[in-house]
Amino acid sequence: MSAPRVILVGPMGVGKSTVGELVAERLGCAYRDTDGDIVAEQGRTIADIFVDEGEPAFRSIEKQAVHRALAGYDGVLALGGGAILDADTRALLAGQPVVYLSMDVEEAVKRTGLNTARPLLAVNPRRQWRELMDARRHLYTEVATAVVATDGRTPEEVAQAVLDALELKEA
């Protein structure tokens, strides 16, 4: 059974997709994002799923997408920001090469302005981002093999830090 070479977790806007693509390129393998899998499978945006069906329905769809990806993918994999909320998913991540990309709220404001189409940040985004992180930070840390801070770093620097943290060599 194949398993991902690198799994990236962290909050929305931390750069999992950008960094994941760079890491995959450096490792000479493919990149995949479970949020992208969900959008392709559902034929609509994540924001639309949240609005139309609610967060519990989205989390169920997300859990299935993550479990499929973890079971049969051998490239670099990025998980949606809330994927680690599910206990079964956290159990599947045990022993895997998981890197938690972290950032503080000031960095989140700089990167996203916290005004993008993020359903969980619709009202008072700065406060909501802090509350989400307070609820999730320990879960990201729990599943992580390594933590890489992204604050003040370029995507290239973060990608190199991911490779270094997992002791992976470029292809």
Rank of each mutant, 00 (worst) to 15 (best):
D35P: 01
G15P: 10
D35K: 02
K16A: 12
V23T: 08
C29E: 01
A30W: 05
I7W: 03
K16P: 10
G10R: 09
E25H: 15
V19H: 05
V6L: 08
T34A: 01
D35S: 02
K16C: 12
P11G: 07
S17G: 13
L27W: 08
L8E: 08
T18L: 13
V23A: 07
I7K: 02
T18D: 05
R5Y: 02
P4V: 05
R32V: 09
A3Q: 15
G15L: 10
R32S: 12
A3N: 03
G20Y: 03
E21Y: 00
D33F: 00
P4L: 04
A24R: 01
V14Y: 05
D35L: 02
L8Q: 10
E25L: 14
S17Y: 07
E21H: 12
E25V: 07
L27D: 08
V6Q: 06
Y31M: 06
G13F: 13
V6W: 03
P11A: 15
V6F: 05
E25P: 00
C29F: 00
V9R: 08
L22M: 14
R32P: 00
G13M: 11
M12T: 15
D33L: 01
T34L: 02
K16Q: 12
A3M: 10
I7H: 04
V23D: 05
G20F: 02
L22V: 07
G10E: 08
C29G: 04
M1F: 10
V14R: 05
G15H: 11
D33M: 01
G10P: 11
L8M: 12
E25W: 08
G10W: 06
V9C: 12
V9E: 07
Y31N: 02
I7S: 03
G13R: 11
G28N: 09
R32Y: 08
G20C: 05
V6E: 04
Y31T: 03
T18P: 06
C29N: 00
K16Y: 12
M12K: 13
A24M: 04
S2F: 08
T34R: 00
V19F: 07
V14F: 09
A30H: 09
L22F: 05
G20P: 05
L27A: 07
G15E: 11
V23R: 06
L22K: 14
G13V: 11
I7V: 15
L27V: 10
V19R: 06
A3P: 00
Y31Q: 02
P4M: 04
L8P: 08
G20Q: 04
V9H: 07
I7M: 06
R32N: 00
G28T: 10
E25T: 15
A30T: 13
S17Q: 07
G10L: 10
S2E: 14
P4I: 06
S2Y: 06
G28F: 09
R26E: 14
V23S: 07
M1D: 11
M1A: 14
P11Q: 14
I7C: 04
E21W: 00
L8V: 11
C29Y: 00
A30S: 14
K16M: 13
G28A: 09
L27H: 11
V19A: 06
K16S: 13
Y31L: 03
V14K: 06
G20V: 05
S17T: 15
M1Y: 11
S2L: 15
G28P: 09
L22Q: 14
